[in-house]
Structure formats: structure tokens, C-alpha cells
Nucleic acid binder design. Sequence first.
DNA 1: TATTGTTATACTCTATAACTATA
DNA 2: TATAGTTATAGAGTATAACAATA
Lengths: 152, 152
Amino acid sequence: MINKPLSTLETHLGYWLRMVSNAVSHSFGRKVEAEGVTVAEWVLLRMLYDVDRSAPSLLADHMGMTRGAISKLAERLLEKGLIERAPSAEDKRAHTLALTSGGRGLVPRLAALADANDLAFFGGLTAGERQQLEHLLRKIASERSLIDMPVD
Amino acid sequence: MINKPLSTLETHLGYWLRMVSNAVSHSFGRKVEAEGVTVAEWVLLRMLYDVDRSAPSLLADHMGMTRGAISKLAERLLEKGLIERAPSAEDKRAHTLALTSGGRGLVPRLAALADANDLAFFGGLTAGERQQLEHLLRKIASERSLIDMPVD
DNA sequence: TATTGTTATACTCTATAACTATA
DNA sequence: TATAGTTATAGAGTATAACAATA
């Protein structure tokens, strides 16, 4: 009896995705390390930059993390003086997180590093290819309800 | 003076890549957990399935990990009885790792789970889109020398 | 001295679950 | 009882560095 040939690692898109994503994130992690933060911290800081003030539970939803994980992340950012925590007026159980002025000043520098990292990895693609890639990733994300945003 | 608008998280391909890749790997991790292994362990097992026997340092190179990390991974697989370690005949410093019969029997079941996971995430794309995505990821990987393989 | 591999240490990321304070 | 948040615990993943044996 002949064995059915096994699918290889390389036949799975998940394999390529993981390899490239790990390389991109790792490279970005090295860059932001110079500013004293991690990739997950950058995402949280960037979100707070837009909303000014947010409940940890909302951030957890947006980042796809548990509340416990957000607490731990927030604790580190508090220690670094990049965010501040305040009690909510209406609901005494609730807190809000916001950037400190130091945190607010840091975000543009981190954004520049993110821009540079993206360019380093995807600058070799044509504009059309980059658009294709974004379209495909958004499509998968929206199909799996990874985000609440529209594909286009 | 007007502030230059900041790039958002969503303008970075690295952001989308990380989001989708994390979801795919996490989902796969849940699946293989039922067979008692992790994603990284699956990759190592699958590699050994093809080569029969390999030095830890070679596996480290192929997987983009340090030798220390491979040692730790190998230690867990040894404890689970899925691989075996043997001294090398020529070089007494060197070891080789190989699948046990139990490990060899497990790989096809894990491969089926990998197939299913890929289908669940990328089955919504057309065949052309999947090919596009693979092409783009391979292109980035080869440009950054993440692998020693050709793009096509 | 250089190399192969292991071991020790440390830190991030993340989850689960127990807990506290409020609702 | 249910909810917001924190804290405790644990394990994966990974890196760096110290170490042992051999080359």
C-alpha cells in the first residue's frame, strides 16, 4: 500500500504568514526597544493617542486580549510613566487609562519607527502588491471577525 | 502650526500581518493542543519527518531559532516520547535528533490539522487569491533572506 | 581557541482563575 | 448575582550568557 503524501510545512499559508509576521514584529520590536517599549505596548499607546481616555476592558476588546493581560501591560506603562490611571466618575468600579504628556510625546517617534519598519519589509513590493496584500489580509480578518472594521 | 497627521496602526502592513498571523497560529495551537503538542513542536516534528535525523544546530538554522531554544523544545519532545536523541559517531560533541515511532505516527494527524486550519482561514479566498498571498509572502521572505528557498 | 550542545536565567506574552470592590 | 478591574499563577516562546565536552 502506498502512503498518501503528507502536506509539507510550505504548503500552508499559515506557515508563511507566521514566518514573515514573526520577522516583521521581531524587527519592529528591536526598533522600539530603543525607546523602551514593546510592540504590544506600542499598540496600546497608539490607541490611547486617538481616544484620549479609555476603559481597560474596551482596550482589551480592541486588542483581542483578556482584561488580565491588559492590566499587566498597563502596569508596565504606568511604571514607565507613559500612561496614567484614573477612577471613573459614574461607575466606581471602572477606571480609565490615558497617555501622560511623556507618553503623548513618545507616540510620534514610535510611529516613525513603525513607518520605517514597514518600508524595510514591504518597500520591495510595488504599490499594487502592497495594496493586494492589505486587501487579502483585511478580507481574512473581516471574514473571521477579527475586527469590527469594513474590508474596504 | 499644524501637527503632521500620524500614521495609524492600520496603515502598516505589519499590523495586519500580525493580527491575522496571531489568529491563525492561535487557532492552530488550539487544534494541536488536543494532540499534546504546540505549534513550534509541530514544525520541528514535521522537519524531522522528512530528514529522518538532524543535528539540533541545523534545526535551529532552519527554524530561525537559537540553539538554546531548540534544546528546550527538544527536551519537551523527548519527555513526551516523540523524538529521541543519539550521539553522533564522527563528532563526539554532536548529537542527532530523530522521531520515535510514536512521533512518526503523530505527524500525519498533525498535518491533517494543519490542512484543516489553513482551509478554515484561507478557504474563503479564491485559488487565485491564495496563490497571490503565497507569492507575496514568499517574495518578502526571500528578499529578507528569511529562507534559503527560491520564490518560485 | 573555536564549536556543539546543554543549562541557567530572565523577560514578554498570554491565558485562566481567584479575588476585591462595586453595581 | 453580575460586572470592572487587579492579582496570582503558569506555561510558551525566546534571548543571552555561562558552562562542558570535544575538536
